[in-house]
């Protein structure tokens, strides 16, 4: 059993599908971040999910999916400024990596030279 079940949490959706849980987080969060399955939170819980896995921030609360094989997917909320800071930092790292892979330069090269070129595509 993960340490999450011993923490003070709120349940927003119970025994639902992963898709519905993801949509709930996307619609009910002030900020939404996408992580890979296996993203670690609260020391020992590795997020289980179908990519893209949505994580939400609402005030001081982090919203995330929690999956149990015989019970389906739950949307849980736990207050944690530390985990929210990690999510934001992780997003910052992702942006840095995409820029390093040649985001702006490659994009600039791929841009059409004129409106005429746009219609050629």
């Amino acid at each position: 059993m993960s340490c999450i079940e011993q923490m003070k949490y709120k349940l927003y959706l119970e025994r639902t599908s992963f898709k519905d849980a993801r949509e709930y987080i996307e619609k009910n969060s002030e900020e939404v971040y996408y992580v890979d399955p296996g993203y670690k939170i609260f020391k020992d819980y590795y997020i289980i999910g179908v990519p893209p896995v949505a994580m939400g921030v609402r005030g001081k609360e982090m919203l995330f999916t929690y999956v149990k094989p015989c019970h389906g997917t739950f949307v849980m909320g736990i207050d944690s400024e530390e985990e929210i800071a990690r999510l934001r930092e992780n997003e910052g790292e992702k942006i840095k990596k995409s820029l390093k892979k040649g985001g702006p330069k490659e994009k600039a090269e791929a841009m059409p030279a004129s409106f005429g070129d746009m219609w050629k595509k």
Partner: peptide, 10 residues
């Protein structure tokens, strides 16, 4: 079930 599929995706 959907939960099993979610584990498979993980």
């Amino acid at each position: 079930s959907d939960a099993g599929m979610t584990y498979g995706a993980t």
